[in-house]
Design a protein around this nucleic acid. Sequence first.
DNA 1: CCATAATTTGCCTTATTTGCCAAATATGAC
DNA 2: GTCATATTTGGCAAATAAGGCAAATTATGG
Lengths: 111, 111
Amino acid sequence: MDSKLKIKYQMRAELIKALAHPTRLFIVDELAKESKCVCELTEMIGDDMSTISKHLSILKSAGIIESEKRGTQVYYKLKMQCVLNFFMCVETMIQEHLKEQMKIIEGKGKS
Amino acid sequence: MDSKLKIKYQMRAELIKALAHPTRLFIVDELAKESKCVCELTEMIGDDMSTISKHLSILKSAGIIESEKRGTQVYYKLKMQCVLNFFMCVETMIQEHLKEQMKIIEGKGKS
DNA sequence: CCATAATTTGCCTTATTTGCCAAATATGAC
DNA sequence: GTCATATTTGGCAAATAAGGCAAATTATGG
């Protein structure tokens, strides 16, 4: 593959990888509603605060969320709203895929 | 976090993970143009055919692409067109992010 | 300056992903 | 049947990602 093309897809993959984790997806959904600090997200999710902080850092370096310091707290908010459209696409895919798998299971009796 | 919510985000993450690889993103883009067999994709990408086959299998089990056997060959095509909208969103994010980073680099002289 | 709270960073261990090779499987031609 | 071609599968080593803990950092209030 051409090296410029390679870089293009590497950059895309980097960004998508930032979304490819359940906790980070939850965070994006929450920050779509309203901005939240690390401690609030930590409370909601229940992992170690350092873990949440690292997830936030991954999302931030990908440019998906942004942060703002308020006193001793850091508030994060969603920056790229267009990911929310993608989530709808993802939900559709999941549902259609489940439907198909159900059909396969149901029809498994026939030879 | 609630266990139902957890499952929801795990499923989303599974699907997104299937997209989170440069080769697989290239494949999706190619299959969006027209259906291709494993050997054609292998030729274009240059990795081992078994590697390409595994990438295709990951995309297929996620429900993103589908396959059809023609003689001894297997043709794959894109199933979920909506991922293409997302790629536009991704491209926008990447460009805006690069612009910002350029600003930071340019303005680094000031204290 | 000291104490406290919020956040980030570094280190470490474990789990997952990747990609190649070789072997197995499937299909069609002869 | 055998042979050649296309594809998938299994196994394994290297690379990458995840998450917890402790230490470092930052800002605030006395």
